Amino acid sequence: MSNTIVPGTGDWSFGLAGMVYEPFILTLETMGYRRNHNLFICFYDWSQRIEHSSSHYLLKTIAQAKEKTGSNQVNIVCHSMGGLVSRAYVQSTTYKNDVDKLVILCTPNAGSPPNYSYWTGGELPLSTSGKFNFVHFYMKMYLTYLSKRYKSNKIEVIHTHFKGLQDIMPSVDYGNYLIMNNNGDRTFVDYFGMKSQNKWLDQLNANRDIIQNRNIDVTLIAGTEEETIKYLEVVSSQSIIQWADGKVIGGAYTNIGDGDAVLDSVFLLDGDQYTVEGTHIETLYKSESILRSKLRQ
C-alpha cells in the first residue's frame, strides 16, 4: 500500500496486508535474513499491469539488492500475483541473468476464475464454505473504494484504475472455465470465443520454457485441501458493459486448491513441486521447512 495506490496511505508498506506478510518476513528473519541487508521487499503497484510492476518496481529492488550485497544474482521468493510479476521479468528480453532461484508460492500461473467475475462484473456473487478468505475480502474492499472514489460505472472504473486485475484471469492453459446455463442446459463456453481472454498470460505461458532455458532453479509451492472455485456458472447477460461472457450465478468447487488458486494452475510451470495443506495465506507460514531447504539458510 502507498499513496500511489490509495492517496493518504503514506509511504510504501504492507498496509492492511501487513497481518499476512509481516509474520512471513519475520519467518525469513528467523532463517538468518536481515531486512535491507540480504532481504529486500519489493513493494509494487498491483493496480497497474503486471509488466509495469515488473519493470518499474521489481527491477529496482533487484538492482538495490545486488548493489548492497555485492552479489551478481538474487533469489526471489514470491507469493500469489507476485509470481507473475517475477515471471514477467525473468522471461523478458530485458532479463539480466541475475536470478538464481525462483520460489513461487500460490501463484495462479494459469489464472484464477474469480478474477473473471471481478473484472467483468465488479463482484464475486458467490458464497463459499464460510471460512474467512482474505483475498476475497481485500478485493471487495478495494473495489468498493474505487466505486466510491470515482463515482462512475464500476466496470469502467475497474478497467481504468485496476488494470492489473485482467492479467490474473484464466488463460488458455487453464482450460474452459465458464459453464453457460441456458434454461437448465449447461455447456462450457469456448475460451477462444470469449471476449475476455487473458492474452497477456497466454503469451507469457506460451514462452514459459524460457525460465528453464535460462537455468533458473524453480520451486513451486501450492496449498491444498481448501474449497476453491474451479468453474463459474453463468447466464447470458443483456448488459453491454458488464459480464462480457456471461453473468456469474454459481460456481463449481474443488478441494485441490488453496481457496484462491487451484493446484493445476500453480503447477503449470516445470520445477520442484510441493503441496501443503492450507489456505492461500496459511501456505506462506507452512512452507518454512521447504524454504530453508531450497534457500539453504
Results as ranks from 00 to 15, higher is better:
residue 5 I to M: 07
residue 6 V to H: 04
residue 9 T to S: 12
residue 12 W to P: 02
residue 13 S to L: 04
residue 13 S to C: 11
residue 15 G to V: 10
residue 18 G to D: 01
residue 21 Y to C: 01
residue 22 E to G: 10
residue 32 G to C: 10
residue 32 G to H: 10
residue 36 N to L: 08
residue 44 Y to L: 00
residue 49 R to E: 09
residue 50 I to F: 04
residue 50 I to L: 06
residue 53 S to C: 14
residue 53 S to P: 07
residue 63 A to L: 07
residue 69 T to V: 03
residue 73 Q to G: 01
residue 75 N to Y: 13
residue 80 S to G: 04
residue 85 V to T: 09
residue 88 A to H: 01
residue 89 Y to I: 02
residue 91 Q to D: 03
residue 91 Q to S: 14
residue 104 I to S: 10
residue 109 N to C: 09
residue 111 G to V: 05
residue 113 P to V: 03
residue 116 Y to P: 06
residue 118 Y to I: 00
residue 119 W to N: 11
residue 120 T to S: 15
residue 120 T to N: 14
residue 131 K to S: 08
residue 135 V to Y: 15
residue 145 Y to H: 06
residue 147 S to E: 09
residue 148 K to A: 08
residue 154 K to F: 10
residue 158 I to K: 05
residue 158 I to A: 05
residue 161 H to C: 07
residue 180 M to L: 15
residue 183 N to I: 05
residue 185 D to G: 02
residue 186 R to V: 00
residue 187 T to N: 11
residue 189 V to L: 01
residue 189 V to Y: 14
residue 189 V to C: 02
residue 189 V to A: 06
residue 193 G to R: 08
residue 199 K to M: 02
residue 201 L to Q: 08
residue 203 Q to Y: 14
residue 207 N to H: 11
residue 208 R to Y: 14
residue 213 N to T: 13
residue 214 R to N: 08
residue 218 V to R: 06
residue 231 Y to L: 06
residue 232 L to Y: 05
residue 234 V to Q: 01
residue 242 Q to C: 15
residue 245 D to Q: 10
residue 248 V to W: 04
residue 255 N to E: 06
residue 264 D to K: 14
residue 265 S to F: 09
residue 268 L to A: 08
residue 269 L to G: 10
residue 271 G to E: 04
residue 275 T to Q: 15
residue 283 T to L: 09
residue 284 L to G: 05
residue 285 Y to I: 00
residue 289 S to R: 13
residue 291 L to C: 03
residue 294 K to H: 13
